[in-house]
Every structure is written in C-alpha cells, then in structure tokens.
Design a binder for these strands. Structure first.
Length: 761
DNA sequence: CAGTGAGCGAGCTTCCGCTTGACTT
C-alpha cells in the first residue's frame, strides 16, 4: 500500500483537496502552527545568537502524534501549508516534529483550491525555502523580545499585568492620540446659504458656491438678494460614472459588515468561519482581492446569462498594500448558484459577499450629471443646483448600494427665477471621527501592522488589558444661528443642534494615556507608526537571502535593550504622572493626583512620612490628573457622605469605589452610575435600594433548609451550595427541582476552578 | 466582580501569528 500524505493548515481545506486528489492521497491538517516558543519565559538565548527554544504546543500534541503516525505509514509526505512566511515556517516545524528532512521533503503550494491548481502543484514540488523560514523566525523572535522585555517594564513602572507589543501598543497609541485630538478640537463655524427657487409646479433647490465667515456677512448677502434678479446663466450636462467595489479581503469585509450590517469584527469572523467550514465561501483570512481564473469564468457566465453581455466587464485585482502576502484568494462564494443560507446572520454576510463578488465583474454605472448656475445680478456669488440620474445601472443591479436620482426641472438659459426662500445656516466643523473596531482595522492595515488572522484578537486584547473601552457617548446641545429671507424680509432664529453623540466607539482609558505617554517617551522607536514597515523591509532582506536573521536581530536588539535598561531610571513619580494639586487647608497636608495601581486617584499626605499612612480617594467624575482642582479634590476626601435613611430606618452612605459611584446600606453595595455620590438625594437613593431589593427577590428561585440554593444566573438557572455550582439540565424544570435532585447535580458538578483573584489581606 | 491605592517582597502577569473547537454554573 503506497500512500501519499498531504499536510495542509486548515481541516476544511483538507476535505476539499482530498476530493480532488483521489484515493492514493490522504490529506490531513496541522491546524495552523504546531510548535512555538513556550509561553513561560523568554526562551530566546540573547547571548547565543538568539537561539530559540521551540516546543510542540500543548493543544497540538494530539495533532502532532496523529500526523507522525500517518507520516510513518506513508511512502511520501507533501507539505502543503500556505505560501507565505508563516506557512513556510509551519512546513519547517512539521519536519522537526515528524522527523522529516527539511532539505528533501516535498513542499508544494497553491493560491486557490481548484482541481487544476492542486494537480499542477503536485507536478512541481520544491523543498522548503529556509530563507523564508528564517524571516518568520526573525519576526517571531522580534515580537517575543519586544513583548517580553517591554511588558515587565510596564509592570514595574506603571501597573502589573499590563502588556506591550509591536501591534497592540500602536493600536492603543492611535486611539489615545485621536481622543486627544478630539478633546483639543475647537469647532469653527461658517454659514451655508441654500435657496429654493419657485417654478410653476415644482421647486429648484440650489446651494451658494460661497460660505460666509459670520452672521453679518450672511445677512449682508441676503439683504443684497432683496430686489435682485435671479437668472439661469448656464446649464451644464456632463456624463458621470460609478465603479464597483473590489472583492473582499478580511479587512474590507469587516469594514463593510460593520457599515452595512452593524456587525462587530468578531461577529463577522465567526459567521464567515461557519460559511467557510460549510464550503459556501473561500477562505476568510486573506489579504488578497484576487479572483481565481476559474471563478472569473464562472462569474462571467453568470453575469452574461442573467443580465446580458452589456452588463459584463472583466476585472482582476491586486492588493494595494505592500505588506500583503497574498497566500489566498479574495473572499468569494464557492458556488454562485447558492443564493441563500439557512442561518440568518450567515445569510446576511453571505449576501454581502455574493453581491460584492458578482458586482466586481460588472459594467460601470453610467450617470447623466446636470449643473445649473443661477446668478444674482447685484452679487458675484452664484447658486448651483446639481442633478444626477442613472442612465445605465450596470453593477448597481446587484451591488445593493442605494442610489437616489436627483432630477432637475427643465429650464432654459437666460430664464429668470423667483425665490421662495433663501436660508443661511451656521455650520460647525467636526473633529476627526473616533475609531470604531472596523476603522481601526482599516488604519492598521494601511500602516501594514497586524495580519488578517490577528485583527479580531488584537481588538479583544486591547480591551481585555484595560486600555480601551467600547463606548456609546451622549451628545451635547449647542445653538445654531439661522437667517431666513422670505417675501423680501429677513428673520433670525436660533435652533438647538445635537452634536458629539457616538456609538460603539473605541475610547482610551486612563491606563492607555499613562502607558502611551510612558512608551512614547522611553520607547519611541517601538511605538513609531513606521516601526513595523521598517522591520518588514528587514524581514524581506532575510527572505531574499541578503541578510542573516541573527545579524538583523542583533542590530535591532542592541538598541532596544539599551532603552530597556535606560528606562529603569525613570522614577515612579514621573511614570505615574504625579501632580501636586494643593494643600489641605485643615491639616496642611499635600494633595497629589496621580496614576495608582487601579487607575487615576488622589492622595493626601506624603507616602515618605513614616508616621502617617496617606489617605486615598478616587478622582471625581469627568476630571483627569491634569484637570482636577483643589476644591474638587477636597470634596472627594469628604466621602463617604451620609445621604439619609431608607424607609425602614437604615443609614445610606454614598462613595466612589473601584466600579464607580455606589451607595451602601448595611453591607449591601449598589452601583448608582451615572449619578454622583456628592449630589445624590435621599429619594433617589431609596429608589435604587428598592430596585435592588426587587432584583434580589428574583435572583433566588428556591433555598432548601440545607443551604443549597437554586439561582437564576446569566447563563441560566444553576444550583449552588456556596462552594460548588452545578448546571441544571435543559429538560429539567428548575422550579420543580427537589433537594435530592439538587444534591445529585452538585455531586456530579466539577470542582470550582481556581480563580486568580488577588489575595485578601 | 466588589469597594483598593505607600512600602516591604513572595510569585504571578506578557508578545504575534497560524488554526479550530469547547461552551461558560
């Protein structure tokens, strides 16, 4: 029995390829990387040419032993991991884990999963490209060095458990700097003027080609309009066009799914993974917009058969980003005749992919654009009316992009017009927008930072480490001045406009501010926006065999490590941005604002004073280390504040704690976000107390005499004895559960996992 | 979740990139 073993990265891929290759081939998958640097410790000997220690990852032990067994039973092994840096390294690691010779083992690659591509690949095997492997090792080791030398500096200088890395620290920096830009932004305003001209049975809306600096200039213009003659001076007809979008890559799919469907980056990837596993779409982690020749042919047939020859237009695509490795093709349907999938979320995403793919091979939409110019005889400014009508829909037939025709009325040059009304309205400038998950991914891709498989995890990491919070922001109101000309008389009004609302945006926490400042000051070269791009150039030199990876790393590391050593002399006072706010008039003690172990805080008294422990308090709402005043600080030290009594006579106190403002009744803490403990009234506090009581009454379904409780938890009802929790089976009614049954569930439940909570004093 | 924060010091934390489950009590 002569067997051929082909090893790919993805199990879904393995299934498809096996079909194409026939029975003498067995196709297995490695499930991605199989060996890595162990998580604990650096595992790189910086004194011995950066010698790495690799080991088979825990979760890959089973996979590796299965592959080993299959390899032994095979006559020939074919390493078919992806054709990129990581894929080459996977092939190389496989050689070591399976006991194969990396110099002779057959290595094959293909960019698309089609029968012809795969049989062609089998005909042209090569051996592992060790230069490409070395480029991957350089990338891997550099990331480990940066991550594992920089993070401990943060533990010491800023706060434990923090992390830093080539990708995440830049992502955080982007968000921090954008927020600062927004906060220091002062809106300016200008005045736009819009006219409605009267026609027999319709109106002509037009906007003035000039914007005025202030209300006076606007008023002067409108006064000049009184008694003026308005004349159609020019009617300009121009052709226009619209082009379809490029087939999806991971990043553009995430952006479009967010824009059109409101999906988070993670949601999109989970749904896409399902579609891929079911064979509905091609691989979803790709940086290439390229369509395979075979799929181009299929789309061509589909478009011509469905819409006709006029609607077809062939286009092929290449990535604009130099960092792209293009090991896969674009994300597209595997079979265009599938137009629906069962699951609703998957179906919505699939629809997006289907439409984008087909539209990319369709003709441009043709538009007829019209611009009508209206002159005002006493003024040099012009009114412009713009119209746009689709005369050939082309790709718009399937793209799903809404287009609205703006049809202008038929007019002739020289024709005079009367106005119905002319309105001048104040218009404020806006700061750059905050980053959303999707726009952050877009920015990172532009900078060449991160890879398709890491966008979603990176967004999770910066949130889990407490650098970023996904937040909705309430808007504020501001007055907007409007001046209207109607029937030759002017009237001024002031309206209120809502501005500054934001939904699901990434906001930096104080931790992000302090950490970014620290990194910028002491490790500027690492958080530089070009750091990755520069490193990539070096990796390319290694991949081309022009430089040894050890030499490349040595150059990087000697500079980097020096920064690490130098950073040791930064005082905690500096890294925590300690600021003297003032003196307590009562005790004369100094009050500081600074960044503490749990975020920004206030400190009264000097820590160096051995006799007296300093007092601590939270920062008041909407203040920062820089902005908090002495008055505000003193108020915070007056907390906790006695608010009053509950109707059953218990004392209510209010304070701010780790999780924000709260009230306390006996031993119960109740969060009062967004209220302020300094201003909450007794009545408000009582309402919170009652609501809390009601919630608690619903939490416990039943309590047995033995102390065993049936509780309504966030994942469904469960049984607890205080030490262990047990899940109630779905087919059991929690309301009818007997004590004996509850005990049985508890007996079977696994011991509570050890939590990593901090030890209490 | 649970209402801290100095300092002392034990022992812990941490990177990026490639894959898919397991499944929260």
């Amino acid at each position: 029995m002569s067997k051929q073993l082909v090893i790919v990265e993805s199990p879904a891929k393995a299934k498809t390829i096996e079909k194409y290759l026939g029975s003498s081939y067995q196709v297995m998958s490695s499930f991605g990387h199989i060996r890595d640097l162990p998580k604990k410790h650096l595992n790189i000997d910086v004194n011995d040419n950066f010698k790495p220690t690799y080991e088979v990852s825990d979760d890959k032990k089973k996979v590796v032993s299965a592959l080993k067994k299959a390899a032994k039973e095979s006559e020939q092994v074919w390493l078919a991991s992806d054709e990129d840096r990581e894929g080459e390294a996977i092939a190389w690691h496989l050689c070591y884990a399976l006991g194969l010779d990396p110099k002779t083992t057959k290595r094959i690659v293909f960019h698309e999963i089609t029968k012809s591509a795969i049989t062609e690949a089998i005909k042209h095997p090569r051996v592992i490209d060790i230069n490409l492997v070395d480029a991957q090792q350089a990338r891997r080791i550099l990331d480990r060095l940066v991550g594992y030398e920089l993070s401990p500096v943060l533990w010491k200088k800023v706060r434990p458990q923090l992390s830093a890395g080539r990708v995440q620290s830049v992502a955080v920096r982007l968000i921090v700097e954008r927020e600062r830009e927004i906060n220091s932004f002062t809106p300016t305003s200008e005045y736009r003027v819009n006219a409605q001209f009267k026609l027999e049975d319709t109106q002509l809306p037009a906007e003035l080609n000039t914007r005025f600096k202030n209300l006076e200039e606007t008023k002067e213009f409108l006064e000049g309009c009184i008694g003026s003659k308005f004349t159609v001076s020019k009617i300009d007809d121009k052709p226009g066009k619209r082009t379809p979008g490029v087939p999806f890559t991971t990043s553009t799919l995430q952006q479009e799914a967010s824009r059109a469907l409101g999906f988070s980056v993670r949601q999109t990837m989970t749904l896409a993974q399902k579609l891929y596993e079911n064979g509905i779409i091609t691989y979803m982690r790709t940086d290439s917009p390229t369509l395979s020749e075979q799929s181009l042919g299929n789309i061509k047939d589909y478009v011509i058969n469905t819409f006709g020859q006029d609607y077809y237009h062939r286009r092929q695509f290449k990535s604009k980003h130099s960092s792209a490795q293009e090991a896969h093709e674009a994300i597209r349907p595997t079979d265009l005749s599938i137009d629906k999938v069962q699951d609703e979320g998957q179906n919505r995403l699939y629809n997006l992919i289907w439409r984008r793919t087909v539209a990319s091979q369709m003709a441009e939409a043709k538009l007829a654009k019209t611009e009508i110019t209206v002159t005002v005889d006493k003024r040099k400014e012009l009114f412009l009316a713009k119209g746009e009508v689709v005369i050939f829909d082309g790709f718009l037939k399937v793209s799903g992009r809404a287009t609205k025709d703006i049809l202008l009325p038929k007019l002739s040059e020289g024709q005079n017009l009367d106005y119905d009304q002319i309105i001048g309205r104040q218009n404020f400038s806006k700061p750059k927008p905050r980053y959303s998950e999707a726009s952050l991914v877009k920015k990172l891709e532009e900078l060449g930072i991160g890879r398709p498989s890491t966008y979603a995890p990176t967004i999770s990491t910066i949130q889990n480490r407490g650098y970023v919070e996904k937040t909705d922001l309430e808007g504020k109101e501001r007055p907007v001045e409007t001046i209207t000309l109607s029937n030759d008389s002017l009237s001024e009004t002031v309206e209120l406009e809502n501005y500054g609302q934001d939904k699901s945006k990434l906001l930096p926490t104080p931790t992000a501010d302090v950490t970014t400042d620290f990194l910028m000051k002491n490790f500027g070269s690492i958080v530089d926006y070009d750091f990755t791009a520069k490193a990539e150039k070096d990796f390319d030199l290694v991949a081309e065999g022009k430089e040894k990876w050890q030499a490349m790393l040595q150059k990087f590391y000697s500079d980097f490590h020096e920064l690490v050593i130098k950073s040791d002399s930064v005082t905690r006072e500096e890294s925590t941005q300690t600021r003297l706010v003032g003196k307590d008039p009562k005790s004369g003690e100094q009050i500081f604002a600074r960044y503490g172990r749990f975020g920004p805080m206030l400190q009264k008294g000097d820590a160096a004073d051995e006799d007296k422990k300093p007092a601590f308090a939270s920062l008041p709402k909407d203040t920062t280390i820089e902005s908090v005043t002495l008055e505000q600080a003193l108020e915070m030290f007056s907390l906790p504040r006695i608010v009053g009594k509950t109707d059953d006579g218990q004392e209510i106190t209010a304070n701010i704690g780790r999780f924000g403002p709260y009230i306390k009744i006996d031993k119960t803490f109740i969060s009062i976000k967004p209220l302020d403990p300094l201003s909450i009234t007794e009545a408000e506090a009582r309402t919170y107390y009652l609501e809390n009581k009601e919630k608690l009454s619903k939490k416990y379904i039943k309590e047995f005499d033995s102390g065993i409780k049936i509780v309504n938890g966030p994942y469904g009802p469960y049984v607890t004895d205080g030490k262990k929790n047990g899940k109630i089976p779905k087919d059991t009614d929690e309301n009818k559960l007997t004590e004996a049954e509850a005990k049985e569930i508890l007996a079977k439940a696994p011991a509570k996992k050890r939590s990593f909570r901090r030890k209490k004093k």
